[in-house]
């Protein structure tokens, strides 16, 4: 069943974060900041700008190489969420049919440019986010966010989400399996049954939440999630941040693509 397969897949990205490379060793905070700067710069480009976005591919490619992250994994995960981006932009060429000159003789509708721009921005931002998780681990990112000043209410929600998504999926998997064993052919697969299953899952979740809260109370929980600081910002982090800032600044301020194109031309 695909559900089982998905379940085993979800932990994979997480396992990658156990790696030990230059990128993995950086303080999570510097990676979070760098990713944020990168993402904000990428989305700061205008609707019809395509060419200036291309050099930014360097960032995910470098991260991927330095952190030994398998390219196919990131590509696959991106494909999974790509429908969102595709549907946002797919009608642009139809509605935005102003003619734009690519060269003296080739004209296309402006919608194609904005569609392409959306797709590239999507690819850049999603791959950066995936790489952040793959090199930092989800809890690492949460801790970094908290230390950067995000209220602990949000970060602890995220931590619990991460911890219990696996438990919940297992629970859901058990319910679905039990249903499959007792439904023959198409019987017992209707919407009504499905609604019932969701209800069961919901009630089990509430019960579990109360047991978890009980466990937290028995260990002295007083409303604040406290965690220990595990990393310090060091020279490597400063260098990494400086490099990212410099790269982003150069790409944003100068026409790198045009410059490279110019070199090739002559």
């Amino acid at each position: 069943m695909t559900f089982d397969k998905e379940y085993f897949n979800i932990g994979y990205l997480d396992r990658l974060s156990y790696g030990d490379t230059v990128i993995h060793r950086l303080d999570p905070r510097s990676k979070v900041i760098a990713t944020m700067i990168f993402v904000i710069t990428v989305i700061s480009y205008g609707k019809y700008q395509v060419i200036p976005l291309i050099p930014f591919l360097l960032f995910p490619v470098l991260l991927m190489t330095l952190s030994d992250t398998p390219v196919m994994l990131i590509v696959k995960k991106m494909l999974v969420v790509s429908p969102f981006a595709v549907f946002i932009g797919v009608f642009n060429p139809v509605f935005d049919n102003r003619a734009v000159a690519l060269s003296d003789t080739v004209y296309i509708s402006a919608g194609w440019l904005s569609f392409l721009s959306i797709l590239i921005k999507f690819a850049l931002t999603i791959s950066a986010a995936l790489l952040l998780i793959a090199t930092t681990s989800f809890p690492g990112v949460c801790n970094a966010l908290r230390r950067l000043g995000v209220p602990s209410l949000f970060t602890s929600q995220l931590l619990f989400l991460y911890r219990y998504i696996f438990v919940l999926m297992e629970e859901a998997m058990r319910i679905v399996r039990a249903k499959d064993l007792k439904s023959f052919g198409s019987r017992g697969t209707g919407v009504k049954v499905f609604a019932g299953l969701i209800g069961v899952l919901f009630i089990r979740t509430i019960e579990r939440a109360s047991r978890i809260y009980n466990a937290m109370l028995s260990r002295g929980f007083d409303g604040k999630m406290k965690t220990m600081k595990k990393s310090r910002l060091g020279v490597a982090d400063a260098a990494f941040l400086a490099a990212v800032l410099l790269m982003v600044y150069l790409f944003r301020a100068y026409d790198i693509a045009g410059f490279l194109g110019g070199i090739i031309k002559y």
Binding site: Y162, R163, R211, M216
Partner: peptide, 13 residues
């Protein structure tokens, strides 16, 4: 106090 289901007991990442 240690509860029956360790998944409820272990809530941190």
């Amino acid at each position: 106090l240690i509860f029956q289901n360790p998944d409820d007991q272990l809530f941190m990442p």
